[in-house]
Design a protein around this nucleic acid. Structure first.
Lengths: 216, 216
DNA sequence: TAGATTGTTAATCGATTAACAATC
DNA sequence: TAGATTGTTAATCGATTAACAATC
């Protein structure tokens, strides 16, 4: 897929944003775009766009630009949106519930196959198309279904133990909403941390030092 | 507060993580730490820690290290945790509800003073310590209360109009959970985007290219 | 063909790491 | 004092930007 061996993290983190903008363009029936036009819409340089895309191959055509839907499909493929990785959600509290309902896992290459909680009073309740399962059945479920990805919506205090259990069950990929820093405890693991607390503090810094801090 | 004029974004984004780790150390009654010890726990280099901290001043003592609670307090102050910036939440759907309940705004220098929605069937309902307010009353409320920060938990389609309304009401800081890219439309604005969809896609890339992609 | 725009190489810029003198 | 560890300068590394030849 990729031309070179090592794609930098900076490039990877821009890919979903390209994918999103190309989706918007497609909706607006714009079929062709140049790196310069796209750079103006996305507020980055045309050079960077061309460099980024060329990590993965030549998607453009000299003198013309890029075909929007072709490029979007290609980036989607690089991101793995056409996969169906079995995914489980641990923790059906407020945040877990919001993600279960709000996130389109299928569009991101994931298939949500189970939701677990330890709270007896909600086990068995429906959540979206699912029924909340007992965390005590985690081992049996995973041995049968072999999920690859876990979404962690659990308190920091519970995180370490759950991650240990999940890694033993062959899960090596985590979308982590707890404050626990998985990467400091485990290696050979793919982690995407969403530290909402850190994010709000970053905003707070920006507000108090008002220098238009923005994260693309 | 800061020594130089321009603190890089890379440094700023690490501050909340330092703050978090120092909080953990404090809980464990560790009163003193060296940059080397901290670097091992946080999986970064001691050089980087010293460089980062020295953007804001000399918090350490040669031959000794850093006083944990002093340093934590100092970073907290830099981040503005002791402020009480008036904050409103727009959108009380699943995600908005989760944030209202789950996030400790006070600990991040923000004070949640109002929650708004356009859905008549939930307006008036309680949410945490608040009552969901009618978005039609946004102007009157803001003129009276003068909030500074808005948390956006609204659909992408509604985002542009809401941001326009809010900027007119003097709100220039946004914690944005919608897919709308505020920074491409407005300037003179402080934005922290939490694009959950982008985050999941980044994880998907990591899973499909399994190279221990991690975000510190 | 002429004009436009890519793919790619080279130059610049910034961030991280290493080294070490200052000093507790 | 000797040992430890910071604060800070210098060296390295990587990412971004600029430039331009290739080519549609």
């Amino acid at each position: 897929m990729s031309k070179g061996i090592n794609i930098s993290n900076s490039v990877i983190r821009r890919l979903p944003r390209y994918y999103r903008f190309l989706g918007e363009l497609e909706k607006q029936n714009i079929s062709k775009i140049s790196s310069r036009e796209l750079s103006e819409r996305m507020r980055l340089t045309a050079s960077q766009i061309r460099q980024d895309l060329n990590c993965f191959g030549g998607f453009g055509q000299q003198g013309y630009g890029y075909n929007v839907s072709e490029l979007r499909t290609a980036i989607g493929h690089i991101l793995g949106v056409d996969k169906h990785r079995k995914t489980i959600l641990i923790g059906a509290g407020n945040l877990g519930t919001a993600l279960a309902v709000h996130i389109n896992f299928e569009k991101s290459g994931c298939k949500l196959i189970g939701i677990f909680d330890s709270n007896k009073s909600i086990i068995g309740s429906p959540l979206g198309e699912h029924t909340i399962l007992d965390i005590d059945n985690l081992e049996a479920f995973c041995k049968a279904e072999k999920p690859e990805i876990a979404v962690l919506c659990i308190p920091t205090s519970a995180a370490k133990a759950i991650v240990d259990r999940l890694t033993k069950l062959g899960i090596h990929s985590f979308w982590n909403f707890s404050h626990f820093d998985i990467c400091t405890e485990h290696s050979d693991i793919t982690v995407e941390n969403v530290h909402l607390g850190d994010s709000l503090l970053t905003l707070s810094y920006g507000v108090n030092n008002r220098n238009t801090s923005e994260k693309k």
